[in-house]
Amino acid sequence: MKTMLLLAPLLLAGTPAADAGPAADPPGEVATATPPVRYDLRRAQAVPGDAQAGKAKAEVCGACHGENGIAPAPLFPNLAGQPAAYLYWSLQAYRSGRLPESPMTALAATLQEQDIRDLASYYASLPVPPPAPETETATAGTDAALAGRGRALYLDGDPSRGIPPCQGCHGDDARGNPLAGYRDRSGRLPYAAYPALRGQQPDYLRTRLQQFHGQAIDASSNSRIMEGVGQRLDADSIEALSTWLSSLNE
């Protein structure tokens, strides 16, 4: 297990610091250079934000992500309970133009630093509720064989194709990296910005993995890891992973 949990630093060990862009230190550091920076999330720090203030600022977000952070449509991601660091740096990446163009691009461009901190803190504070009846129905109709392949790929990877197990960064239960709270000697949180994938919306998972496969995302040290993994995932693997992860609602 320790070997898998240390996968991210090992994969990035040979990456020159300059190539990874400026450190994600302190929180909120956003360079104005062109092209936009790639954030080194191995040096991320805690995200200080006001969840209550974030709730007041999240009204417009509910149209796509749901009133309680659970998206009403499978194309949009659930945000409830995601790590604050992941949400924070995702919004920074949208604001800096490092993520593919989407409705989030224009919305994030209007956010101030404190807005990003507060929104990240708010959605991270939300509990993940039990699945709605329609989600349970979809789960019951999941292709068992396809989901089984996704489970095996997530937990064990595929050494023959150079695909590492996803649990190395996202946890064996897909609830996020179990070392998310670990601080190094400098007080940084190198594992804090990995998202939870359990019960995530299927179309969103599929789209994101396809973007990594097509090398369309170059936002951070974490996305560099996923770019390497994504290039090795074929369409069947992406479908299997998306099917299994989105079926995990308990």
Rank of each mutant, 00 (worst) to 15 (best):
P72S: 12
A85M: 08
L91E: 09
A80C: 13
L146A: 03
A71N: 10
G81Q: 13
T137N: 14
T135P: 12
Y122G: 05
P83F: 09
L79I: 05
L99M: 11
V128K: 05
Y94P: 01
L146Y: 03
D115I: 00
F76N: 12
S121G: 10
T105D: 07
R117N: 10
F76Y: 15
E113T: 15
A144L: 13
S90T: 04
A120G: 04
M104K: 08
L99I: 08
L91W: 06
S102Y: 01
T142N: 07
W89T: 01
P100H: 05
S121R: 06
P103W: 07
D118Q: 10
T110L: 09
L99D: 00
Q112T: 14
S102P: 00
E134L: 15
Q82C: 08
V128D: 03
A106T: 09
A120T: 00
S121V: 05
L146E: 02
T135Q: 15
V128M: 08
R95D: 00
P131I: 12
D115V: 01
R98M: 08
A106Q: 10
A132T: 13
T139L: 09
G81E: 12
T105E: 04
A106G: 09
P133L: 07
V128A: 06
E101S: 02
Y88W: 03
P133M: 06
E134G: 12
T139R: 15
L126I: 02
A106V: 08
T110Y: 10
A71I: 06
E101N: 06
Y88F: 09
A132M: 13
S96E: 01
L87Y: 01
Q92N: 14
Y122F: 12
D143M: 06
E136G: 13
R98L: 08
Y86N: 10
W89V: 02
D115C: 05
L107M: 02
E134A: 15
W89C: 04
Y88L: 00
Q114G: 09
A73H: 15
A120F: 00
G97W: 01
Q114M: 13
A71K: 13
E101P: 01
R117W: 07
P103L: 06
S96G: 05
S125G: 08
P83H: 11
Y123F: 14
A85Y: 07
Q82L: 10
E101V: 05
Y123S: 03
L107H: 02
D143P: 04
L107Q: 02
A80W: 11
E136A: 15
S90G: 05
V128S: 07
P130K: 09
L107A: 01
L99E: 04
P72D: 11
Y122S: 08
G97P: 03
T139I: 13
T105R: 08
E113V: 13
Q112A: 14
P74N: 15
S121Y: 02
G141I: 07
P129C: 11
L87V: 06
G81C: 14
S90D: 01
G141N: 14
L99T: 02
A85G: 11
P74I: 12
A93I: 06
M104S: 08
A84I: 03
Q92Y: 08
S125L: 04
E136T: 14
M104T: 06
Q82V: 03
L79Q: 03
A138H: 08
A132D: 13
P83N: 13
R98E: 07
P103H: 10
P130Y: 07
A124S: 06
N78G: 11
L75S: 14
P77M: 10
Y88A: 00
P131F: 11
Y122R: 10
L146G: 00
L75P: 10
P129Q: 12
